[in-house]
Design a protein around this nucleic acid. Structure first.
Lengths: 228, 228
DNA sequence: GCAAATTAATGATTTATTCAAG
DNA sequence: CTTGAATAAATCATTAATTTGC
């Protein structure tokens, strides 16, 4: 259990999962559990400095690779097509019920749900509309960041209002409360976070490497634990 | 196709995949493609500020959650055990061959491989030792960031050496070259990156939303394309 | 010569910033 | 303008090198 679950890399597989849901042909490379598909198509990340046409975005990378070779020969074929089941609107549009539940969870203390939690939330919210785990994940990321942003701004405004009279920006009192906040941030989730995992990833399951008794973290702590 | 694949959320699923590889019981919630397992047990995030004993690292977070409740009742059971197949050491320890291949790919221009690419790389590198897609993903992230870091540092040193004589730090000439670099960063991959995806995630697959012809990106461009 | 402690390198997460869709 | 989505930066944590004491 416990699988550290880095939030990063996960997006790949969510994509993958959605794709493989329809395609019934296993990619025959289950070693690293990679469905094989997805895409590149990343954001061009406009420089924001002074580009007249932010829509261009491609700028041929100019293939400047042409030396050194390995014994990889057949790795260039797996055009995963992503048949015809995962598509629809462009991006997730949360329904009011979904937002309500998400905000409730957030106010309940949830900050960065793990896989299990996201899974459950997704399942729950799926009743109110199409949703993917990724959406839940991103929602918490964004909500957390923006709430913090709002609070910071409010604090600054309050301070500047109380302290002096109306100076727009006080360069002093940096505060940087988020730095210290990080430590707690990892634990302010609803999970118990016993101590820490010794072998969060691999683990042949020989013995409980941590103190981990998988805790059965209460995803929706809004109910005491009774049936409802 | 091409599934945007945000690198973030992906980590969850990689973990999941590794776990489900051994456990043969489907989690019965394939809606959002979430294997259901993983863990919390995150890093304690040591404050780094001024703790005399960096080895302690725990510091009980004091459970301060306890109110708010929703109508979720049965979501609290899925103790995924992670049987006994994916374990080993705590973190990935790349073999020299693996590093060699990864560096070759990096020098070949690969920066942020997508799922397909990571899948292939993982498959390839799996010949030299245990590896997961996540590891490949993180390797590129870290390598990219640290190479950039190194270059920045070198540039600063060079400038300070050339410009003045030995002043330790010049507060001027911020440079911030990485800002502009970001635009290219998204495209300097080996993938073609047509334009950008319209419906990267959901997509019922009704029609080709993008210009996507899945390109068959050459993962290991070291060989022209022949069999070898 | 070996083992424990310390340092350096780097794998893994979280947070901050940014782009773009509605 | 709001906010979902994605990446880059910063940070934490673990492992290998290296050093130090015996």
């Amino acid at each position: 259990m416990r699988l550290q679950l880095h939030h990063l890399y996960a997006a790949y597989l969510d994509k993958a999962a959605a794709a493989t849901t329809s395609s019934s042909s296993p990619p025959l490379i289950p070693s690293s559990a990679f469905p094989a598909f997805a895409f590149k198509c990343l954001r061009p990340l406009a420089p924001k400095i002074s580009f007249p046409e932010p829509r261009k975005m491609i700028a041929p990378p100019a293939d400047h690779f042409g030396r050194a070779r390995i014994n990889t020969s057949k790795l260039l074929n797996s055009t995963v097509q992503l048949p015809t089941s995962t598509a629809g609107t462009t991006r997730w549009n949360p329904s009011p019920e979904q937002i309500k539940v998400l905000e409730m969870l957030y106010r309940g203390g949830m900050r960065t749900p793990n896989s299990v939690q996201i899974d459950r939330i997704t399942e729950e919210l799926g009743k109110y509309g199409r949703i993917e785990g990724k959406n839940v994940f991103y929602w918490f990321q964004n909500h957390k960041a923006r709430e913090r942003q709002k609070q910071k701004l409010a604090a600054l405004l309050t301070l500047s209002t109380l302290d002096s009279s109306s100076l727009p920006a006080a360069p002093e009192t940096k505060e940087v409360p988020e730095k210290r906040n990080k430590k707690e941030a990892a634990c302010d989730d609803l999970t118990i976070s016993k101590r820490r995992c010794k072998a969060p990833w691999g683990g042949h399951g020989d013995a409980a490497d941590c103190t981990t008794d998988d805790v059965t973290l209460e995803l929706f702590p809004l109910r005491p634990q009774g049936k409802a």
